[in-house]
Design a protein around this nucleic acid. Structure first.
Lengths: 344, 344
DNA sequence: TTGTATGCGTTATCAG
DNA sequence: CTGATAACGCATACAA
């Protein structure tokens, strides 16, 4: 029996009509107990599984949740996925994961195709703030609930779940300032991504509030990966005077910076303090343990999934833009700047 | 236009039959250039995407590759996924990711449902060596290409892609032995998972070859996550005499061990040497940098995906069990045992 | 080269 | 309560 059983076969074996089988499968109408049992038996016997394709075609929707993420290789995103999956699975939704590799073209390809599978909803961490904007040649999918996570398109007015990026970055920068740093650098993340922009804003606000002038060369735009952080940090570290503190837009970038520091024969935190963003699990293991702005990817995913499921079940409330908290986690990668302990 | 365009609409607008539209979409029959262009224009204009549901139902297969992994939270698996996705995407296949959380029941639920979506193929990292065995109440899906990765069901005779677990573990253990360790412990991973069993075998072989007796309490079965490694390491570290070296079945477990060492006020490697398996990116960042047996998750995924695509396109060659190499990467988490530098 | 018609496996509507 | 039957959107065999 190489082919899956169909409803028709079940119906024949159980001596009922195909409609009746459908009713017992879906509980969509009462069925006489005797028949019901017979049908259920045949189903169990044949290991029948309803064709999701046929069902989806007919119902014009499936139990899939389409999820689009930029980089599965950055552990922050798997954490988000995990959060989504945990709440989705329990409600009988399955998540279809698409990795865009931060490529808007790939993102478009994935989303377009995803739609043609008629998922019940979409969860998108956009590759860029211009993702899915009209300029990009396509618009927001209509008629299917959609939530943005972590970042959002510039003009998006619908549901979204993010974190307090500006505030988190502000806290981190404040802390650096309070430790006495003034030669403050930032590895900023991509300027076309909203959360990076917000983190940058927090950085700037803290500097302004403390009247420390921003040195333009000290803020370097990076991608959100380790290698990009590494290369930009190298640039930073070769400047004169050298910055004494680096705020990295995420932990991957911070790790790259750590690598650069080592490679230049410098020491963190003695020669340069570093602080990251995300507070991934590995922060407690690095040498030195990395101070970072904590956010919970799991919470973000779970929250978004819950909201999405509400939308799917028809809740019509007006759009929510949920902002989850961030919190500075202090470890060993920051110390007062060099000048303040001249004995070195 | 809230609903997706259908072929019928395209046909009407382009003044052709629906069959013709199908032919230009699929290149399944020559169409007069004039008509072809007209159809293509309408398609572009309406942003038509063929319904994958309808297509799948009709063709009895889709462009989806079902992929099942045990724990998206362990960075090794996302690396595998990335490898799969890279080769799949280029060939127009999409990967549907399912996270089983190492739960056989969840695994079964996912696989059963996956099948009803008629994916072109399946890539499975099984939760247990008994996954998909008949005892578990269901058998290997028929009629759809299937490849196991990383681990395999005990009696599986079909395609599989793994790494040289036994050999890698042997090398690691040899190295520890050569450094002078004799009180050798292992955090073994789950005994119901083939790669853990193989790693254990390598460990035992090395000990046997060097005539060092195995201390049964020194080998602790763990899960493959950090927390389990942490707890088991704590047990290990409280034994008298205390083992001087720990071989962890993967890096997550090794990290847990590192944590335990710290928490007990001990030092790695001075008091206890640790070596991991996987050689994840973070190994170079830990304190101390973690020695580990390298394997490439990306390669594993890419290799498996290539093999799967061959099967999908009908290649009938006999089953392949591909074994990728492993290689010991020495860093700073291992040193000669305490007794050998008694000055401490 | 193009059009027509059938069926893929379901669900849903409508009689009975 | 149960049984026919018509879509759902597409691919394909067959006719024209």
């Amino acid at each position: 029996m190489t082919k899956p059983a169909t409803m028709k076969q079940i119906a024949e074996r159980a001596q009922v009509s195909i409609g009746t089988v459908s009713h017992v499968v879906n509980g969509t109408a009462p069925v006489r107990e005797k028949l019901r049992k017979r049908v259920l038996e045949v189903i169990a016997h044949l290991g029948y599984q309803p064709s999701q394709l046929a069902r989806g075609l007919r119902r014009d929707t499936t139990n899939m949740l389409g999820m689009v993420i930029p980089d599965i290789t950055n552990p922050f995103f798997p954490a988000v996925v995990r959060g989504v999956e945990d709440v989705a699975f329990n409600k009988s939704y399955r998540v279809v994961l698409c990795n865009t590799d931060n490529d808007p073209a790939k993102e478009k390809a994935y989303i377009d195709e995803l739609r043609s599978y008629r998922p019940a909803g979409l969860l998108i961490i956009p590759a860029s703030e211009r993702s899915m904007s009209s300029e990009l040649g396509y618009s927001i999918p209509q008629g299917i609930p959609l939530i943005f996570l972590d970042r959002r398109p510039l003009d998006w007015k619908g549901d979204a779940v993010m974190v307090a990026n500006e505030e988190g970055a502000f806290q981190a920068t404040q802390y650096l300032l309070k430790m006495g740093h003034t030669r403050m650098a930032m590895l900023s993340g991509p300027s076309h991504v909203t959360n990076a922009v917000e983190r940058m804003a927090g950085f700037r606000r803290a500097l302004a509030k403390n009247n420390v002038k921003i040195t333009p060369e000290y803020v370097q735009e990076t991608r959100f990966d380790r290698d990009s952080g590494y290369r930009s940090a190298l640039r930073l570290l070769n400047m004169l005077p050298r910055p004494t503190a680096i705020f990295a837009a995420n932990d991957m970038v911070a790790l790259g910076a750590l690598l650069a520091v080592r490679e230049m024969g410098l020491r963190c935190p003695k020669d340069v303090s570093i602080i990251g963003f995300d507070d991934q699990d590995l922060c407690i293991f690095t040498d030195p343990a990395l101070s970072s702005v904590h956010q919970s990817g799991y919470q973000m995913g779970a929250t978004a999934a819950r909201l999405l499921l509400e939308r799917i079940s028809g809740k019509k409330a007006r759009p929510q833009q949920i902002v989850l908290p961030t919190e500075l986690r202090i470890r060993n990668s920051v110390v007062a700047p060099h000048e303040m302990h001249p004995k070195d």
